[in-house]
Design a protein around this nucleic acid. Sequence first.
RNA 1: GGGCGGGUAGCUCAGUGGGAGAGCAUCGGCCUUACAAGCCGGGGGUCGGAGGUUCAAAACCUCUCCCGCCUACCA
Length: 877
Amino acid sequence: MEKVFNPHTIEGKWYELWVKNGYFTANNSVEGEPFSIVIPPPNVTGMLHMGHALNNTLQDIITRYKRMAGFNALWVPGTDHAGIATQNVVERELAKEGLNREMLGREKFVDRVWEWKEQSGNTIIEQLKRLGCSCDWSRQRFTMDAGLSRAVREVFVRLYNEGLIYRDNYIINWCPRCKTALSDLEAEHELTNGSLWHIRYPLADGSGHLIVATTRPETMLGDTAIAVNPSDERYAPYIGKDVILPIVDKRIPVIGDSYVDVTFGTGVLKVTPAHDLNDFEISKRCNLDVVKVIDDDGRMNENAVHFKGMDRFECRERIVEELDKKGLLEKIEPYALGVGKCYRCKTVVEPSLSRQWFLKMKPLAEPAIEAVRNHQVRIIPEMWEKTYFEWMENIRDWCISRQIWWGHRLPVWYCDRCDRTYVSAEDLSTCEVCKGDLRQESDVLDTWFSSGLWPFSTLGWPDDTKDLRTYYPTSVLITAFDILFFWVARMIMMGIRFMGQVPFREVYIHALVRDAEGKKMSKSKGNVIDPLLMIDEYGTDAFRFALAMLAAQGRDILLSEERVEGVRNFVNKVWNASKLSLTFIDSGTAGIESGKSAFLPDRWIRSRLQKVVRELSESIEKYRFNEAANAVYSFVWHEYCDWYLEMVKPNLYGKVDSFDPSLTRSVIHRTLSDILKMLHPLMPFVTEEIYQRLPVRESESIMVAPFPKYTEAEVDEAAEQEMDLVMGIVDVVRNIRGETGIAPNVRVEAVVRADGRASILQEYGYYIKELAKIEHLAFMDGRPPEQSAVGVYKGIEVFVPLKSLIDVSKELGRVAKELQKIEEDSERLLKKLNNPSFREKAPAEVIAKNQETFDELMKKKEKLVSSRELLENLAGN
RNA sequence: GGGCGGGUAGCUCAGUGGGAGAGCAUCGGCCUUACAAGCCGGGGGUCGGAGGUUCAAAACCUCUCCCGCCUACCA
């Protein structure tokens, strides 16, 4: 085996083997409790970023763990067609060729997108494979597959027939660049510094003017009224009068509406029904005209008088200029407002009246709220429940139609001859009534409409399939919070509506990955860490393990390259520890389990392993990935490597023959195998590589080996306590050596006074000597040797005769420092113990524990004081 | 406007009522044949601030100061 582990030579090899042997493929008729996850489908346009890497690493950890633990595990992979995003990508490609989609026409354009999808759409899938994801690729889905498209139509038709889908004129967010409507969620509000322009609207009777405050002066061209609050004494008398709309030079009424906030601006509101949601609501209440002034491309239209054809933002400036010139601009105030931007292209969206398709959400939301409230769906961490409720309780109808070409075309047909509308899961061509030709709705559905069906559409719905019966509801959904509303909430609603059951039992919401400074990673900031570069540089195992270690609940993950490097070192440690372990084992050492080793380190490591197995399993089950990773990290490095492997060497190298080495070899065999299996979900590749080198294995691949189970019979509290003493004594000697500057290659003398607890230390004296570099280890009960440094562990004293080995003043300093610490600690404890209310009210075991600690400190102090006297004499001589 | 999260060692973070922890960084000593991507040892924190509850608070309550996020139909 190489001295340094090289991940790149092995990763591809094992992944291929796993696929070839079908380990990822779930069998829906096999025994075992089902465990299923559906992947949050990445966009087909996607390139693996840190968010994907974390998300999929966590899913893979839990899937591999469950699979090894005996579950019938299924992880369904797939991709999302990502309507607007994908269309934009292909349009950019066309632009390079001097083309645009209109030039191609709808059909050819869609063909072109499919072509693109076939060529490039698999990039992210290949990247997931490099991450080691154990997805069932035989069940890979795409939101525009025939099957999933059928599910989309079925859902649309049913919702329409139930009256939940309707078509209406309403204010929606319009992206002038993507030229489509967006849902409320797709408009991201960003606090922006703007202005509040105060504009004079002259009264038609010439008796003065009213001042209106607005952040979007260009929309005034579409004003059809101005409104005041009827309870506002300042303005109530004006209600019913007319004002002259400046520039347009048109009479519009002053109306009263209680919506107007008397405290905002001037208390006078301009009403632009076509470009503002509230104004539109007012217009319906008051029966006002609706005048659109901004076109679908963000330019002013024919209603904008001489501004026709001008860009909306330029128009804003020109209008302000013109108003100013006419003396109608009262003042300009700086004002910060939330500006909506398209989540795909960041263009400022225009609220605009438009005829769109909507889905009524309230009836869907109610059972979905209930499901979370009564924990049919458990959201973890729980704090996200509040956010979920907050949004769901105030949910508004969802604009589901998009004016793009790439996506699921609405299954709606119109007869232009007799003006009928048909909604059907099957394609239609002829009007049943007038036999005229039918025209299919040109709009497509919001991408999130199809992803909302993902947990059951991927399993075969609307057919009643074995997969659905076996794996639905899925066990858990693992995702980041940024798509809680976009996706998670909608899946819960749709799952309950169409399956009659929640889509998943648990939702684990993990953090966002940020850079080392805590900033959101983005291309424009240039702080993006490319996961594939991390994999290239440090290996997949190190990268995955690092993500897991950082994945604490409820906090963002700040990833730095150094962190991954540190874990790379751990992977190498595992590699080297395995290399050594493998030299101790052979095909004969596997089966010897009946003869329980009496060798303390053997008993100890097996006992410790049980506890770590339990901790690891519990942590993964609770999605505490950082705790899982940390537990196994410190066990492997600091217990197995630092103590256990060091301690078995003398025995196995034949330096002492007090214990049967074949039993120890057997323990190493089992323990190494268990460690590999424990690590496998976290670092799949290196563990497989080493597993394959075991002389005897339980299975062809570690992937399908049984996960270690907590075994009570191997728990050995006595061994843990005895080992604790041995390690404690070694630590004391090492500490004296380190602190007093004894060179590592110098062997020292040591004397232990253990007050009757010497036997275990005597028994393992040879090992203590090896670990602490002691030449002679003596045990005594009487007077301590003179001229010695002393250390105490749990009341056992260790003397290291100084002779000429050490610097006396240094040692005095060390003792003084330790005494001071004892002084501080014991003082605090004493105060507590002497407190009558503490003695009265604290639980007995807490009092006992404190007392015990105090007694120990006192003992230690006594010993150090005598040691100090000794040293002082020595210094005096 | 409403809501949420965070402020613990130089850095990144664990730690939800009883002796302040980890990784990295740092300092000192070691090429001890599994591993220098390593080994051994050390230093370093009045747990954002104030008050309160309690025998006991980093943790619970109140207030307060910073930082971040989500959400919203105040033009």
